[in-house]
Amino acid sequence: MLTIKEYVKAATIDEAYDLNQKKTNCICGGMIWLKMQRKNVQTIIDLSGLGLDKIEEREDEFEIGAMVTLRDIEENKALNDYTNGAVKESVRHIVGVQFRNVATVGGSIFGRFGFSDVLTMFIALDSYVKLYKGGIVSLEEFAKMPKDRDILMSIIVKKQPLKCVYMSQRNTKTDFPVIACGLSLVGDTYKIVLGARPAKAAAITYKKDESMDIKEFAEKMGEAAAESFDFNTNMRASAEYRKHLAKVIVKRACLKMEGVY
C-alpha cells in the first residue's frame, strides 16, 4: 500500500532536485512501479511540468526526455527509422497501449529493472543518460551505478551508421521477457546486450567474421554470448533454459539483421 502525504508538480528541475534529496521523498514517472510498492512517501515529485516529454532529433543525436512514454517511442518515426523498428519491437509487447501511454522511458531506465526491455534496447545503441548533477554518463555505465538521488533528465542516443535488431522470448505474449536481446552492429563490431537473465541488461562486444558463412557465424556468436553472461533462475525460467535461449536468440538476432531469419 503506497501512501503519499504531499504532491508537488515541480516548477523547475532545481526544485525537483532539492525535494528529491530527502529520503522520504520520491520522483514519480508513470507511477506504475511505484504504485505497487508498500511505501510511505512524504512528497511525491512530478516532473511532468518540466518539458521532459519530448523526443528531439538533431543532426547527430536523439534526445528523449525522461517523461516520454513508452508509447511515444513506439510511435516515433525517426527513432524507428533509425533503429529499423527495433525500438518499437522492444516495447510493443509490454502489457498494452494504455500501460505504455502511462509508463515513462525515464522510469524504466532509472529503475534499472532486470526485466527492462527499454534498458536492453537502449544499451544496444550508443546511449547516454543526462543527469541533473551527474552530467552525461554512458547508459552502460549508468546501469551499473548504484541508485542515488540525482535526477534523470533525458536519454541521448548518438547517431552512427548502424544496424540493429531487438528480440525477446516471453512465456506469454504480454509477459515480462525471460530473455531479452538487443543487438547492434557498428563497423565490424557487434554489441550484444542481454537482459532479463533475470539480472539487468549488460553488454559484450563481438567481432564480425566475414570469412564465415553467416549461419555458422550466427551459431558461433550465440554460443559465445551464452558463455559470456551469467544466468539465474526465477519463477519464469531456470538459468539453464535462459542460457539455452541466449544462444538461440543471439543467433536469430544476428540472422535477422542480415535478413536471413
Binding site: I4, Y7, K9, C28, G30, M31, I32, K35, I44, D46, S48, V97, Q98, F99, N101, V102
Partner: peptide
Amino acid sequence: PVLSCSMLAAK
C-alpha cells in the same frame, strides 16, 4: 487511453 488505477488524481 490511460490506466486510471495507476495514476494519481493529482496528475
